[in-house]
Design a protein around this nucleic acid. Structure first.
Length: 558
RNA sequence: GCCCUCGUAGCUCAGUGGAUAGAGCGACCGCCUCCUAAGCGGUAGGCCGUAGGUUCGAUUCCUACCGGGGGCACCA
């Protein structure tokens, strides 16, 4: 019996109590089922009675007794106690709890995934860094978190499309092109230009493709340097992210929006909605109608569209492509966008609470031996995604970036992270998976069939033998994955999966320490061996599924 | 000045209004003739920033204040 099953059983018990007239209250659709920290509080606990007490106008303990009485009729429930202010402390029959392992092995990679699709199309945009330089460490956090979130949302039943917005139009791009051209000529970067070795590298590659670059007239040379430099830079960003395991469904070019007339169309739509006006020679959107601090310019007085205008066109484009909900993953330095984006959605006639989700992640800071390291893209002084991966590998990099809440700023000590020491919890989690694989290998060598090998073997395992406290701990932990995935998805909090895996790995290590799985010496395999092997396999499935959601590998050997 | 966010063990951080607030690292003491010791057990370490409020119950929600970080363009 999984926690979800138990929640249904409790709801049924409430429904029965209401039908009998024992309590008078609306039957809830579902109830919370928690894992108590204190083992004396049972396998599972539910505060359902506490939550119903007010509506039922009865003391919580009384409600709890009414539910408990009916709960005891279920054969999977060994005992129910009413404790404290009115908690239901539930102990499952050993066999019922043990079934969790069989359920998991049977489901395999599907375990933890929502049974049904929600029919909601979600667009998730993240990183979207300007193609004027390599992917920096700050953006690397959004890459790791965004990719994990996409996988988690997919597992939770959403149809997810991931997207990278390429800012290949505008002033910064011109500055980048001018910097590339200057580098090609051996001149210093222009004021407000980009510096750094990568600019010279790009310049050299542009020259290799266009040997006549320096003979072209100024305008043409600048055009070539800009166009080709941008293409090379973007290609490098794509391959760096792919190497990091981050794949996008769509790379959306800002320039393509301009060229397709999308900005004009967006302004026309907004005008039709009645939120556009002219002032001081510019065209404005009255975002203050919807809570923004100030109105935002769409077209500057020189006739050029603003960046915000492109944002509007992009928002409209995503919605017209059928996305119900748009998630933007932004850094704290962009939090000022929240108000104007929400107002923008409202100006298009959408309800931002329904269509928009702007997630603000705090910044990544760097230190080296306790000393802060400054990052500046234009000065060319930064650590890149590629540098980080070179130092610690993809798994450690992704894991360390994804295991913290987005609300908390992250400080990476380069000296520490470069050490690849067990200070990084990713090793702890991966090691649990590795140990399991070792046990399974040894079982195969001993000629012991694992439960996952055939439907018959799986059905024949006596899970009621899993009665050791460490086995029960592990079973309860394994049952949590679907809840964790659902919570991580709805709270947009991938770090919850990581924290769960750390806890599960610890629970497994403690089980492993206390419970011998395979026969020793010349002992024969017993039904308990089979039951424990099933439990071990179930743990492997959950660790592998969880790590996959984070884009971290589950190695068989370390 | 206004807005966002954080403040929890020595350090880095978890904690979806519930029971005695947790983990990893660091410190100290133990555990391999036994499936990988990258592991396990134990000890020490906390006015959950401060002060109020909301209620059966607040680390969690609200208000104010203190401290750290970030932001307030007809820039991109």
């Amino acid at each position: 019996m999984t926690p979800a099953d138990l929640a249904e059983v409790i709801v049924s018990a409430i429904r029965a109590a209401v039908a009998d007239g024992a309590i008078d209250v609306a039957v809830p659709a579902t109830v919370p089922v928690e894992r108590p920290k204190n083992p004396e509080h049972g396998d599972y606990a539910s505060p359902a009675a506490l939550q119903l007490a007010k509506a039922a106008r009865r003391p919580p303990r009384e409600i709890a007794e009414m539910i408990a009485e009916r709960l005891r009729a279920n054969p999977g429930v060994a005992s129910v106690d009413v404790a404290g202010p009115g908690f239901l402390n539930i102990r499952l029959a050993t066999a019922a709890l043990g079934e969790v392992a069989r359920t998991i092995v049977r489901a395999g990679e599907a375990y933890g995934r929502a049974a049904e699709r929600r029919g909601v199309r979600v667009n998730l945009e993240f990183v979207s860094a300007n193609p004027t330089g390599p992917v920096t460490l700050a953006s690397t956090r959004w890459a790791a978190v965004g990719d994990a979130l996409a996988k988690i949302l997919d597992a939770a039943g959403y149809d997810v499309g991931t997207e990278y917005y390429v800012n290949d139009a505008g002033v910064q791009v011109q500055r980048f092109g001018a910097s590339v051209l200057a580098a090609a000529r051996g001149e210093p970067a222009p004021p407000d230009g980009y510096q750094g070795a990568y600019v010279a590298e790009i310049a050299a590659r542009v020259q290799a493709d266009h040997p006549d670059l320096l003979e072209l007239d100024e305008g043409e040379a600048l055009a070539v340097a800009t166009r080709e430099g941008l293409a090379l830079m973007l290609a490098e960003i794509v391959s760096t992210l792919e190497g990091f395991g981050v794949h996008y469904d769509v790379w959306k070019s800002e320039r393509s929006l301009h060229e397709a007339g999308e900005l004009t169309a967006a302004v026309a739509d907004l005008r039709a909605q009645g939120h556009v006006y002219e002032a001081d020679g510019a065209v404005w959107l009255r975002t203050t109608d919807f809570g923004d601090d100030k109105d935002r310019a769409l077209i500057k007085s020189d006739g050029q569209p603003t960046y915000f205008c492109a944002d509007a066109a992009y928002y409209r484009d995503k919605r017209r492509r059928g996305f119900d909900r748009l998630i933007y993953l932004l850094g704290a330095d962009h939090h000022g966008y929240v108000g104007r984006l929400r107002a923008l959605a409202a100006c298009f006639g959408d309800d931002p609470d329904e269509t928009l989700d702007v997630i603000i992640g705090q910044m990544v800071t760097l230190s080296r031996g306790g000393e802060p390291v400054k990052m500046s893209k234009r000065a060319g002084n930064f650590l890149t995604l590629a540098d980080l991966v070179d130092a610690v590998g993809v798994d450690a990099a992704r894991y360390s970036l994804v295991r913290s809440s987005l609300d908390s700023s992250l400080d990476l000590d380069l000296d520490l992270i470069a050490k690849q020491a067990p200070e990084n919890p990713v090793f702890y989690v991966q090691y649990a998976h590795t140990r399991i694989c070792g046990v399974l290998r040894n079982a195969a060598q001993l000629g012991i069939a694992t439960a996952g090998s055939s439907a018959e073997a799986l059905a024949g395992v006596d899970v009621s033998l899993l009665s050791h406290p460490r086995e029960a701990d592990l079973l309860r932990a394994l049952g949590e994955l679907p809840n964790v995935v659902a919570a991580a998805a709805s709270l947009r909090a991938p770090h919850r999966v990581a924290r769960y895996l750390e806890e599960l790995a610890g629970t497994y290590h403690r089980f492993y320490d206390a419970c011998r799985v395979l026969p020793q010496g010349d002992e024969e395999a017993t039904p308990l061996t089979a039951a424990r092997l099933l439990l071990v396999e179930a743990t492997r499935v959950v660790l592998a599924n969880g790590l996959r959601l984070l884009g971290v590998s589950a190695p068989e050997r370390m």
